Structure formats: C-alpha cells, structure tokens
Amino acid sequence: MRTGIELHAARVRYGPLEALHGVTLAAPAPGLTVLLGRNGSGRTTALRALAGTARLTSGAVTWDGADVTRLTAHERATRGLCFVPDGPAVFSHLTVSENLGLAGPEAAPDLTPALDAYPELRPLLHRRAGTLSGGEQRMLALSRALLTTHARVILIDEPTQGMSTSVASRTYDLLVGLSAHACVLTAEQRLPPGLRGHAGQAAVVVHELRRGEVVFSGEATELSRRRRS
C-alpha cells in the first residue's frame, strides 16, 4: 500500500535558529498536497527536509511507510523523488534542450510531453537556459519534472513563480493531472484558485505552516470554508 511521504516530529536548525519545531505532516500517494505559509513559515524547509537537502536535527521522514531519514538526496532521487526548488532551478550554462535531456537516462529522451505542456519552450531549445526570463526558466524546471517518468514523489517550491496568469493556470492543471498517479507536494504563499478543489476533482490536502509549526491540516475546501466564516 502506498501511503506517500511524511514528516514525523521533524526539527531542522540553521545554526542557532530552528526553522521547524517538531512538524508532522503527510502527503498521500497518489494525490496533491499544498504547503501554505508566508516567507519564513518553514514551508521551504519542510520540502527540503523531505527531499533530503536539509538535515533533520530530530524526527523522521518516511516514504510508503519506510524510514528514509538517513538516505541522501541522491538516493531519494534514484528511488523516484523529484525536487524542483524555488528560483530558476536550471543549469544556466546548458541549452534548454540539454536541460531537458538530463531528466532521464535515455540518450535521446522524448521531449514531447514537456513541449506539449509548455510550447513556449519549443523555439528556445537551442538557447542557453541562463538567458531565459524568470517565467521561462520556471517552465523549463517544471518540464524536467514532467519528463522524469519514474517520479513517484514530486516536490515543487512555488511552481508558478514569474509566470503569466494563463501559464500559471495551465501549470496548476498539469499538477492536478500528475497527482492522479504520483504524490505531488507544492509550497505556496497562498492557495491558488486552481488548487482549491472542484466538483469531480480529487480532494487537495493542505497543511498551513506558521513560524515553523503546522497550524492547519485538512482539505482545501475545508480551509476555504473556515476562512469565509
């Protein structure tokens, strides 16, 4: 049985400062989970702890019920974890095509899924990634996640950073689609309209963090009702 990826009483310190204060949260598989919080809330640190790029001071990370706390970020990636950090998250000295080619082990991977999702990248394939706009670099970073065919857990920090409204809306549709067969966990400052849950759409799980602690866990529709009341 697939239970997804979880933090258990996780604490993370950066020098003398503790960023996570015993955080426990779960992201089901398959399914879509959103970590909400302002800058400094701990949402990015929570993602990094799950990805293995931030070391736990105490607590544990489990994946499908197995303890993976001691696995490195590389070991988690080889098992099917894909992490897209915030910011550009691309290899700036490589071309768009070369960046996409790093998504899989094939010598000449099929780029069709990425270019169908973001056709804006098609005329940019021979451009160096560092010359792209912020939104274009974000599309490229997410496209690499789309091409990682073995991905079982996909962690994305602020997926639509720098994107236009229309491209952001398309991106949220892509995330919903990916969550039908993978554990998708995204960090946002506020809950986007495209991830609030609609009729016929599977429930979106939300964990809201504030100052390194979870202050709400539940479904997106429940959070929306709570904030309207």
Rank of each mutant, 00 (worst) to 15 (best):
Q201G: 04
E222Y: 04
A51G: 06
G177D: 15
R127T: 04
R210A: 06
L71D: 07
D86Y: 11
A46H: 06
F83L: 12
G59M: 03
G42H: 02
T221N: 05
G65M: 14
L185R: 11
P192S: 14
S97C: 10
A117S: 04
F91E: 06
E106Q: 12
A129L: 06
H181A: 14
T33K: 12
R196P: 00
P123W: 03
A89I: 08
A141T: 07
D157L: 10
P28E: 10
L124K: 09
A27S: 14
T171S: 15
R144T: 00
T57I: 10
P109D: 04
H8R: 15
F216T: 01
S224R: 13
R190P: 04
D64G: 15
R211T: 11
L147P: 09
L111H: 11
L102D: 08
R38T: 11
G80L: 07
T148Y: 12
T148I: 11
A54T: 11
A220I: 08
A10Y: 02
V61E: 06
A46G: 05
L146Q: 07
F91P: 05
G31V: 10
D110V: 03
L142K: 02
L20W: 10
A103S: 09
L25C: 14
G65Q: 14
R122D: 08
P85G: 00
A129R: 05
P192Q: 08
S217D: 06
M139F: 00
L132H: 00
E75L: 11
E18W: 12
F83N: 03
E208K: 11
H207T: 08
V153E: 09
M163K: 14
H93K: 08
T62K: 00
E98C: 08
S224Q: 14
E188G: 01
E98S: 08
G59P: 01
D110I: 04
E188A: 02
W63R: 03
S92W: 03
H126I: 10
E98D: 13
P193K: 07
S169E: 15
G40Y: 00
L146V: 11
A129T: 05
L115G: 03
Y118D: 01
P113L: 02
P113C: 03
A220T: 10
G87E: 01
G4Q: 14
A180E: 13
Q201T: 05
L174N: 14
L147C: 12
G101H: 10
R227M: 09
G31Y: 13
V23I: 15
T95L: 12
T149V: 13
V90I: 13
L121T: 06
R128H: 02
Q137D: 06
V68R: 00
G162L: 02
M163C: 09
G52E: 12
A27E: 12
C82L: 02
P16V: 04
T149K: 15
L35Q: 06
E188W: 03
G101K: 13
